[in-house]
Design a binder for these strands. Structure first.
Length: 325
DNA sequence: GCCACCGGTGGC
DNA sequence: GCCACCGGTGGC
């Protein structure tokens, strides 16, 4: 069955040590500093895994592992984040990687009024059309999630960060904003307070309405633990909880050797190395009202880097199985 | 001591 | 049941 998804967006996990090079993370309660440099973000794709907080363990990776290991300190700083972005064409329903987070936010903001179509990807992927194969494939190392449309574009010099929680947590993700002064804000109230304390932001036209703390929703329905569930009832990987069983997965296909998204496929010559090998693939099914759930984000799970060159093109994959009722 | 991450809870 | 908000705390 074909998904009726029109104009969706996805992105896989990024692993950034921290937002725009803020050396130390601060909350609103902390004092501001003036620093606002603009270091790069690092993008790493992870396999899905339950290693967080030793809550669960899962061996049996089917994906190759990059030997480079972060230090313990880095490891802690590394979170599950978005690594790349894609949108689903409203016409052909194929997925197109989006060149930058900024572009993704622009598309997402306009998703309802101006649905994404392949032609828009010509901006960074010349001559792409609906006849070209999809840019992305499904991968058991990736965790997919639905992003909300019409989230306002992040104001200039601010950074919107979505951090994915571990599987079995009570929430899927946390959304943070980082101010130009390096202050971490985690709610509208904190933003409101910050804007009051920083009239220069208002002078630049930054408003509370430019912020949204809506987080994406996992496609894997049982990724988040219900409130009534105890910590002992953490999900274990089953067919219903996995995006695809390993034997149906083509390892490392998606987002292998991703560049930081800021520098992602800015030029055709980079496309060949940075873009995933296109395959034919049906978009994942999304329950409910796609008109309000058109954007997807693709995440991955653990702290093991995945990097592999492409292999033989796979057969088209079935969408992930629907979660058990 | 700091902070990334998670859980609890009140409001809807 | 969901979500916004924020406090607690384990790991560093």
């Amino acid at each position: 069955m074909e998904s009726k998804a029109e104009n969706s967006m996805i992105s896989p996990i990024e692993n950034s040590v921290s937002p725009p090079s803020v050396k130390r993370q601060k909350t609103l309660s902390d004092k501001d500093s003036d620093q606002c440099d603009d270091a790069s973000q690092q993008v790493v794709i992870y396999k899905n895994d339950k290693s967080d907080r030793g809550r669960d363990e899962q061996s049996g990776s089917h994906l190759p592992i990059v030997p480079a290991k972060p230090s313990k300190k880095q490891k802690r700083a590394l979170g599950k984040q978005i690594g790349a972005f894609a949108a689903q064409c409203a016409k052909c329903q194929k997925w197109r990687l989006i060149s930058t987070k900024e572009k993704y936010e622009e598309i997402r903001e306009q998703a309802l009024e101006d649905p994404f179509v392949c032609e828009k990807a010509c901006e960074w992927k010349p001559d792409v059309t609906c006849d070209d194969p999809s840019d992305v494939s499904q991968d058991n190392g990736m965790l997919w999630a639905i992003d909300k449309p019409n989230i306002p574009r992040t104001p200039q010099e601010w950074e919107r960060l979505v951090k994915i929680r571990g599987e079995g947590s009570t929430k899927f993700a946390d959304v943070y904003y980082w101010s130009p002064t390096g202050t971490q804000l985690r709610s509208s109230k904190e933003v409101e307070k910050y804007l009051e304390e920083h009239p220069e932001c208002a002078a630049q036209g930054v408003k509370l309405s430019h912020f949204s703390f809506q987080s994406p929703a996992p496609l894997q329905k049982d990724y988040v633990r219900k409130r009534s569930q105890t910590s002992q009832s953490v999900v274990t990987p089953t067919r219903s909880t996995m995006l695809l069983p390993p034997e149906e997965v083509v390892p490392g296909r998606l987002m292998s050797s991703l560049q930081p998204y800021r520098h992602f496929c800015p030029h055709p010559k980079h496309m060949a190395s940075n873009m995933v090998q296109p395959i034919s693939w049906e978009p994942p099914p999304v329950d409910g009202n796609l008109e309000n759930n058109m954007l997807l984000v693709l995440y991955s799970g653990d702290r093991t880097q995945v990097a592999q060159s492409s292999s033989e093109p796979p057969e088209p994959k079935s969408p992930p199985p629907a979660p058990a009722a």
